[in-house]
Amino acid sequence: MAQLIHQEVRGEPDTSTVKTSLKYRKELGWLNRVPFWLHGLLVPIVLLIIWQIAGDTGLVTKEQLPTPLAIMKRFIELGASGELYHHLGVSALRALSGFMLGSVIGLLVGMFIGIGKIIERTLDPSLQMLRTVPLLALIPLFILWFGIGEFSKVLMISLGAFFPVYLNTFLGIRSVDTKLYDVTRILGYSRWQQLTKLILPSALPNILLGLRLAMSTSWLVLVFAELMGTSAGIGYMIEDARTYSNTDIVFVGIILFALVGSLSDIAVHALEKRWLSWQDTFKG
């Protein structure tokens, strides 16, 4: 019996991938002569070349749009002088502490509201109302209350990280299967065991989704917070370069944000892969 199942599992996807790759081959035409991994990079490469030519021929000025090569040169310069690491370190610390603070509180509040009916009835409506206020509209208020210091910035970021984690944790807890809950009652789980061995694992896919969203919100709020006034950080570097029309440095900052943003996304995604490998869902 086991062998039979094994064969089924192994047999089916094999034939289907062979079929699709054959179909692919026919439709791709001239693209077949380009290495497979390069396909998605073709468009950016062509755009970069056009951009470089436009800059070299003077179609656009250096202040409007510095050429890719100039940006790369500046990137290396800033990296070599250590300035880049300094700003990056300051920004990463801010974003990370705000993210940690916000998501831990979001996780705890989401759990309590998810488990307790009384807290849900009393606290959730207020939180839902607060959620609809655009976060960035609160920034002036934060500056008035807490100044423009480090504390104020971390607090702003944590508020941005709080809501996605809170909402998704709550959702995850409410999606716990009552049939499995009955099983834990029959097997004599304690309240604590129900929480750690049923509710949290069931809610984990949603919690990780919340963390992923919180991560990107953290970076977004960070940029705003740093543009408002500070003396270090990538946002500061961008703002400072803008006042002196060093457009190439502005680009360096943007690229850094893009890199760090996708790196943190990859990190959470890796966690998902590791912790959610048990899931039996449609994977495309």
Binding site: L180, L187, Y189, S190, L198, W278, D280
Partner: peptide
């Protein structure tokens, strides 16, 4: 429990 292996499902808590 879908996130537990066979032996861990049997052991449960």
């Amino acid at each position: 429990f879908p996130w537990l292996t066979v032996e861990k499902n049997i052991a449960a808590n």
